[in-house]
Structure formats: structure tokens, C-alpha cells
């Protein structure tokens, strides 16, 4: 991706999707710094999740899924690492051992055959029913993002009302920390 007005170097790169784990001090404004960096420099955010993971050290883990050419991805990582409250930036995609999951809550309304079909599909996708009454369900589904996309797609004609998803949380496989 060429972010300058000027013609880019003769390096043709195809965009890639990368999952980044960023450990930051959980201090006021830190998320604004990260998000502002992406908007200010014209980078993509496909998914962003954040939560404090080490309470005593006041550290939060931000998981960002972003798309860009390898040169842009390298820039994103360097720009993130440059922020003062950022401890570490790890590109889980580069390690090749990324485990990424998302949770979704899906509300489906219906009666009769559609309702039975929705329940059957939920079973096949290993979605849990977390709220139910005579005319609707709320399913809880955890998995890769495309699995959730697929389930939501199937629910469409069966009475999908609305759904909420957390965005991707990710970690590396194996015994080592990032």
C-alpha cells in the first residue's frame, strides 16, 4: 500500500493479514494512543480487543488484526513499539503458531421448522444456548472468525435478529510466552 502521494518504489507486495499482540501499561489514554496511531497513519484495524491481563503490574494485552503489505506491517509494528507505554509487540502471524479465537452472541427469533433447524445447526457448530424462550434463542459461539461468519450466515434466513462479537483474542501455541 502506498501511503505517500509519490509513486512508490518498484516493490510490488501483496497485502497480508497479521495478528499482533501488544503488551501495554494499563494507563489512561493508552488505547487512544494505539487507535490514534492507526487512524492517523492510515492503517487498517480489522479487529481489536483489549483487556488487563496482569492486574498487579497493570499490564493490558491488546490483540490487533491488521492488513497491509509486508513493508506496512513492519511500519505498524515499529510505530507501535515506539509508543512510550508499549512494552512489547509480537507478530503472532510471523511465528506461524497463532491460535486465534472469537466469541459471539447471536440472537435468533423464530417458530416451527426454522426454530428447530436453528437449534440443530447450533448443535452442529457447538454453539451453546445461553438464553431461550418460546420465540427466541441467544447462542454463544466460540471459534475462528470465519466459523462465526459462517454460522451467522446460516442464521440469516432462520430468523437472525442481531449479534455481537468480541473481536479476536490470540495467543501462540506451545509452552513459551510471547
Amino acid at each position: 500500500m502506498n501511503t505517500s502521494h509519490y509513486p512508490s518504489q518498484h516493490i510490488f507486495q501483496t497485502p497480508e493479514t497479521h495478528t499482533l499482540s501488544v503488551i501495554v501499561d494499563n494507563e489512561p489514554g493508552v488505547l487512544a494512543r494505539v487507535v490514534g496511531l492507526f487512524s492517523g497513519r492510515g492503517y487498517n484495524i480489522e479487529s481489536l480487543t483489549v483487556s488487563e491481563t496482569e492486574h498487579e503490574a497493570h499490564l493490558s494485552r491488546i490483540t490487533i488484526v491488521t492488513t497491509g503489505t509486508p513493508m506496512v506491517i513492519e511500519q505498524i509494528k515499529n510505530q507501535l513499539a515506539r509508543l512510550v507505554p508499549v512494552h512489547r509487540v509480537v507478530d503472532l502471524t510471523v511465528t506461524g503458531r497463532v491460535l486465534a479465537r472469537e466469541l459471539a452472541l447471536i440472537k435468533v427469533k423464530g417458530k416451527g421448522e426454522a426454530r428447530v433447524e436453528a437449534l440443530r445447526l447450533a448443535d452442529a457448530f457447538r454453539a451453546r444456548v445461553v438464553d431461550a424462550n418460546t420465540e427466541s434463542f441467544v447462542f454463544e459461539l466460540t471459534g475462528k472468525s470465519d466459523k462465526i461468519d459462517e454460522f451467522v450466515g446460516l442464521m440469516g434466513p432462520l430468523g437472525l435478529v442481531e449479534y455481537s462479537r468480541t473481536g479476536v483474542a490470540a495467543i501462540s501455541r506451545g509452552p513459551d510466552a510471547m
Binding site: 505517500s4 516493490i11 513493508m71 513492519e74 511500519q75 515499529n78 513499539a81
Partner: peptide
């Protein structure tokens, strides 16, 4: 480090 490979490889 963010200056490196930003514009020119």
C-alpha cells in the same frame, strides 16, 4: 526503528 524501511527499503 520506525524510520527504517518506512519509505525506502
Amino acid at each position: 526503528p520506525s524510520s527504517i524501511n518506512k519509505i525506502i527499503k
